[in-house]
Nucleic acid binder design. Structure first.
Length: 423
RNA sequence: GCGUCGAUGGUAGAGUGGUCAAAUACGACACGCUGUAAACGUGUUGCCUUCGGGCUUCGGGGGUUCGAAUCCCUCUCGACGCA
């Protein structure tokens, strides 16, 4: 993997670059569609590609449970298995520590509002006897499968092993995504844990890479005629590992984490954990001021249209988020003037496209009334057309931001877009 | 013509003397969703309301009862059976 910065945003941490992986090039900043179970829900890979996406992200824990990482390995790896031949990433399962743990069965999001009054009522979340599917130990996390109730202990080593079996281009260290409802003391403990797990993830990764190279060399020495392209094979088969910075909303912890993780020999970095919407920007800035400039940074699980400007301005190169596909499937569409809930009465006989000047397949071929009809009728195509539109909207928004950096028009574009979107 | 059964809110369908403005599902309406437990979830869905409550509803009419969607009579409509 190679990362090259093309242009910087003068006076800020932002930059446009090119990330080269064994399966192709990613122009950063870029949006990474999420395909948790080796599929971008409701879309086929051609549609994902047509929407302009250059890279996708799948999930370690979910694929480990089903169909099993060994099965994916036998299939020839994720790319071949799911017919996505561009760059791929896998998340480590760290988010499931949160979503199946502290957040399980509760109405908690990793994004909170400072003003959220429910955060002032700790009892609301203190149902310690509430069932959790993820329980954190010092060594790893014990997961109870939501599919069949079986117990699985995931350690950093295990996560990395699974990810090597899955065979994405970029993989992530196993971390603990903490809940925004945890207090500072807990955030600190969790951070120490995540840091130890980062070291162990890195160590396991290096070990597996060494084994892979040794194995490839062994094969090479056995067959003379294969010698030439062999060096390429080494580099193209090697995975890049990103470490993950945590620390919640606390400035000291974020900086401490960025310093610690940034000093380790990772190929790039993820910025994870919970944020308050209002201070996400400063949290990202604290971190990216410390992380080594020459390595790519991925803001995990973000975001909404307005978040990209914040992140990119503060030095983020990659974003992934389920929002465009989940919102789409659930009938909410992005437009330049804000969200549109397509099932609302007003669209039942609206025969205009979702957005007049949108270049996506959905807008070029279908009306609001038709998409609304599909949703009312619970037709599968509705989710597909909506996901295509939303993903096109988001992927291209980030592309436009990238272009605005290259054109020295970032702030003009930001102002213009947000004026309309957040109207 | 006789007999039997049935008629409940937008729809289907519970309820068969008070705890019923009436279960549940669907539909409708509105909202939510940020590294996917999610093609999912939440709220509202007779009328009025100072949100305390008030008022009119279970095919129509009449009756019994302190009290009726629920029991009785009758009418209307429907299904089935017998002529």
């Amino acid at each position: 993997m190679e990362f090259k910065i093309e242009k910087k945003l003068k006076g800020y941490l932002g930059r446009a670059g090119v990330l080269t992986t064994p399966h192709g090039v990613i122009h950063t900043p870029a949006f990474v569609p999420v395909g948790t179970k080796a599929t971008i829900k409701s879309m086929n890979p051609d549609q994902v590609k047509d929407v302009g996406a250059e890279v996708t992200l799948a999930n370690t824990y979910h694929l480990y449970l089903q169909p099993g990482d060994e099965t994916v390995a036998k299939a020839g790896g994720l790319h071949k298995f799911m017919n996505w031949h561009g760059p791929m990433m896998t998340d480590s399962g760290g988010f499931q520590v949160f979503s199946l743990g502290a957040a399980y069965g509760k109405d908690i999001s990793k994004i909170t509002k400072i003003t959220d009054p429910s955060l002032l009522i700790p009892e609301r979340f203190d149902d310690s006897n509430a069932p959790r599917l993820a329980k954190i130990g010092q060594d790893g996390v014990s997961f109870k499968s939501h599919l069949d109730g079986s117990i699985h202990y995931i350690t950093p080593e295990k996560s990395i092993q699974i990810q090597h079996n899955l065979g994405a281009d970029i993989i992530f260290a196993f971390d603990e995504c903490t809940s925004p409802t945890e207090d500072l003391k807990y955030q600190e403990e969790a951070l120490e844990r995540t840091h130890r797990w980062a070291e162990r993830s890195l160590e396991e990764h290096k070990k597996l890479e060494r084994e892979k190279i040794a194995q490839a060399n062994g094969l090479a020495s056995r067959s003379e005629e294969n010698r030439g392209p062999e060096n390429e094979l080494f580099s193209s088969s090697s995975l890049a590992l990103f470490g993950i910075v945590q620390g919640g909303r606390d400035e000291n912890l974020r900086k401490k984490s960025a310093t610690f993780i940034g000093a380790l020999d990772f190929d790039g970095f993820g910025i994870g954990g919970s944020f308050a919407k209002e201070d996400m920007s400063s949290a990202v800035k604290w971190v990216n001021e410390i992380l080594p400039e020459e390595k790519p940074r991925h803001l995990l699980g973000i975001g909404e249209p307005e978040d990209f400007f914040m992140g990119i301005e503060n030095g983020v190169d990659l974003f992934d988020c389920v929002a465009p596909t989940r919102l789409g499937r659930n009938g909410t569409l992005y437009t330049k003037t804000g969200r549109m809930i397509i099932m609302n009465t007003q669209f039942r006989e609206d025969f205009s496209p979702i957005e007049k000047d949108c270049g996506c397949y959905t807008c070029k071929n279908y009306t609001r009334a038709y998409v609304a009809h599909l949703f009312h009728g619970k037709e599968m195509l509705g989710g597909t057309l909506a996901s295509i539109h939303n993903l096109y909207f988001i992927v291209n928004l980030v592309k436009k931001i990238r272009q605005s950096i290259l054109d020295d028009k970032f702030f003009e574009f930001k102002e213009e877009f947000l004026k309309n979107y957040l109207k």
